[in-house]
Amino acid sequence: MKVNLDQDKCVASGQCVVAAMEVFDQRDEDGIAVLLNDSPPADQADDVRHAATVCPALAITVEE
């Protein structure tokens, strides 16, 4: 799995961190999401797909 995060689209909701905190974090100053690992292991894959689904800004895309 390859994860892409478009920080220009991000609205800092933090929903991705709630869904997959091993893979996403937020910047302290403005809450914009940061990708910690763009190739997460298989046991985190479902959480990452869920993060992409609940992102209100559609800023996360996943290539399987």
Binding site: A12, G14, V18
Partner: peptide, 10 residues
């Protein structure tokens, strides 16, 4: 205007 801190307080 404090998104990360808000999410942590969740």
């Amino acid at each position: 205007n404090m998104p990360k801190q808000t999410r942590l307080r969740r």
